[in-house]
Amino acid sequence: MATWTWFHRLASPPYVYRTAATLTPWFAVVAALAIGYGFFGGLVLAPPDYQQKDAFRIIYVHAPSAWLSLLAYTTLAVAAAVGLVWRMKVAHAVAAAAAPIGASFTFLALLTGSLWGKPMWGTWWTWDARLTSELILLFLYLGYMALRSAFDDRQRADRASAVLAVVGVVNVPIIHFSVTWWNSLHQGSTVMKLAKPSMPGSMLWPLLASFLGFTLLFAALLCVRLRAEILERERQASWLKSIVEKR
């Protein structure tokens, strides 16, 4: 049973509140360093692409955003499922905190993809599988947030939106594999084949650093939003009052 104590501790709002506070600066600092290196290496040091010239450089924002749009949804759905199964209040708070961040990254992925598509494909938007499924993901996020806001009772909002999040998870593999399954206009995956990457190291390392940086940025944002969410939910709790009074 000892192996499960970490899991049980996660159910305690004071523990999660304090842990999130401790982790936030670490995540934020490493994220800043990684994104700083990734952007400098990608935008300044890396050579222009032989085909796409300088336009390819938007990949350093676009690909990590797209990755995060899926990671945030997976986080949301897993947290929602945990909240449904074990009735864990903190898990619902994580789901509620992840949704707006995920929606923002999805929007960023669509926006940067659109800016990239104009010089490469000659159009801002095209109805191919990956773009459409990413747009559906944005709609899913919006529906999730709309459902959450439709309830006055927070517990009901938590559990109802959790059901929707779990149902919507079918979309994640569809987006991830859409480039492979359908012969789409969107270029194939560059990074997710580490055995034989289709980029030289001078382009690849900054990209991997951006991925790491964006992921940690998401973690930092999630911690901040999670603390705000816990503050709001636990405003009646005595442990919170004692923390506030100490200051």
């Binding site: 459902l147 439709a150 309830f151």
Partner: peptide, 23 residues
């Protein structure tokens, strides 16, 4: 079923269901 307990049911229902049935 999800929109039963909430306010403003019908528009919300379309918002939830449309992304799921687009495929």
């Amino acid at each position: 079923a999800l929109t039963l307990a909430g306010r403003r049911g019908s528009v919300l229902l379309s918002l939830l269901v449309l992304p799921l049935v687009m495929p």
